[in-house]
């Protein structure tokens, strides 16, 4: 384990770990995503073929996972900004983290059907 990778534990450290892991994940997705979008310059068929994989059940579930990662990174990123710029931010960092988790749970529940509707329809009929 490289020096300085484990800090004091609890909410502060684990939210930082999750922020870092989600950030790296989104970056790798974006790299692949720009490559697949570039296929619109090759041919409509090439693009549609690759987009078809986005519609398979397994990848569709991964898209839900991507939404989970981005929603956490976005909400927690706003919390980090509040900790840095709002004078009372550091004092309320823990409460803000649980607010982030709460909003995240609500949004993930709301996104469940819309994001997975393609899979739900093809697997269980409309």
């Amino acid at each position: 384990m490289p020096a300085g990778t484990l800090y004091r534990g609890r909410e502060g450290m684990w939210s930082w770990v999750a922020h870092r892991v989600t950030g790296v994940l989104i970056f790798f997705f974006l790299f692949v995503h720009v490559l697949d979008t570039a296929l619109v310059r090759v041919s409509p068929e090439a693009y549609d073929d690759v987009v078809a994989t986005y519609k398979t059940p397994i990848v569709n579930v991964m898209e839900y996972g991507l939404v989970a990662a981005i929603l956490f990174h976005a909400l927690n990123g706003l919390r980090v900004i509040a900790v840095d710029f709002w004078s009372k931010g550091p004092r309320y960092q823990k409460q803000m983290l649980w607010t982030v988790v709460g909003v995240w749970v609500v949004l993930m529940a709301g996104a469940f059907y819309p994001v997975l509707q393609h899979t739900l329809r093809t697997l269980f009929g409309s």
């Binding site: 619109v40 409509p44 693009y47 549609d48 987009v51 986005y54 519609k55 569709n60 898209e63 819309p114 994001v115 997975l116 509707q117 393609h118 329809r121």
Partner: peptide
């Protein structure tokens, strides 16, 4: 329709 609609 979510991801269903995406295409060229």
């Amino acid at each position: 329709g979510g991801v269903s609609k995406i295409g060229f």
